[in-house]
């Protein structure tokens, strides 16, 4: 309804003899429309340009790249850079390509996602249906804490995990992801469970069901949509993480983002831009696939942070 008012100035003149009848004449090209679409197309190009350059470069050979035209299409589709990025690109220390990083990221992402979502779901459920003294205060601190820069917690957490003997292992990264995923996910689940009819919970209580039985048999079966949203949020978030991986994972378990950065920024010798871009595309592929497959659910996931509790 908002665009039509822009045509106010061009209200048709009835005196010219055409009797107004039926729909208002709407020229296909109005100046307003042209401006709107031009601006949108300009920004579309800005957003698409890096993706194009990234993909095109990854299929080129180094001589083609040295020719100096990042727009140019590759002479022929060449997968050499991709193979090298996956199997043998050097990260400064080793030359095994990105594949170990990929599998490390998988090993980090899967358990971190499961643990963090499960804990947050239970939190949200307890906060809505089983309030206890101070539960709202804990929740408030949790939300406030999510805005504190991670750098504030880094060193104490290093010490704690070292004391527990898990520093530099997968467990440490999983715990850290669970901790820092907790605020947003708990908020998500708390809001979702809060939107379910309370009568269901009361009826289950009257039927004699307890905390866990209600959670597993009543709440979980109704929560599939929010689990999918949380899944998208966590998989992309954990996959894209750099800081926790580099600090807590230990050299054996470095995730893909860290490996990628090492390949591009720490490698010695002449940089191979095609390999770099192939590695970059590979790293971005997992979240991109999730993004394009999940569509509106992704939007819901990222907007969830904006919905206050």
């Amino acid at each position: 309804m908002s665009q039509t008012a822009t045509m106010a100035g061009s209200a048709p003149d009835t005196s010219v003899g055409v009797e107004p009848r039926g729909p208002r004449p709407k020229p296909f090209f109005t100046p307003t429309k042209i401006i709107i679409y031009s601006v949108l197309v300009f920004f579309t190009l800005y957003f698409l340009f890096p993706l194009y350059v990234m993909v095109v470069t990854s299929f080129k050979t180094m001589p083609e790249i040295r020719f100096g035209n990042i727009f140019a299409f590759p002479n022929q589709i060449n997968f050499d850079a991709w193979i090298k990025a996956w199997t043998s690109a050097c990260t400064g220390l080793t030359c095994e390509g990105l594949s170990p990083g990929f599998w490390n990221s998988v090993k980090i992402t899967i358990p971190s996602t499961i643990v963090s979502i499960f804990i947050a779901a239970v939190n949200g459920y307890a906060l809505i249906n089983w309030r206890f003294k101070g539960s709202e205060l804990f929740f408030a601190i949790l939300i406030f804490g999510s805005f504190i820069p991670y750098q504030v917690f880094l060193y104490p957490l290093v010490m704690i995990t070292r004391e527990m003997g898990i520093f530099g292992t997968l467990q440490a990264v999983i715990i850290v992801h669970t901790i820092f995923g907790m605020p947003i996910l708990t908020l998500l689940f708390r809001n979702y469970f809060g939107s379910l009819p309370q009568e269901l919970f009361k009826a289950a209580r009257v039927d004699g069901a307890g905390f866990w039985r209600i959670f597993f048999e009543i709440m979980l079966p109704m929560s599939l949509p929010i689990f999918v949203v949380a899944l998208i949020l966590q998989v992309t978030g954990i996959w894209n993480d750099f800081l926790f991986g580099v600090v807590f994972a230990g050299t054996k378990n470095l995730p893909m983002t860290v490996q990628l950065n090492n390949i591009v920024n720490s490698a010695q010798g002449t940089p191979e831009y095609n390999v770099n871009m192939a590695a970059t595309v590979l790293t971005g592929l997992v979240p991109l696939i999730i993004y394009f497959v999940s569509g509106k659910l992704f939007v819901r996931g990222v907007a969830a942070g904006a919905v206050k509790g």
Partner: peptide, 27 residues
């Protein structure tokens, strides 16, 4: 909307490296 939001799904590392290449002064 899909086009405007997809960069948000990427890692900052990916974003940084792509733009590093685009803004590479020599090539």
């Amino acid at each position: 909307r899909t086009i405007m939001l997809y960069p948000f799904a990427l890692s900052f590392i990916v974003t940084g490296l792509v733009w590093q290449w685009i803004m590479n002064p020599t090539l």
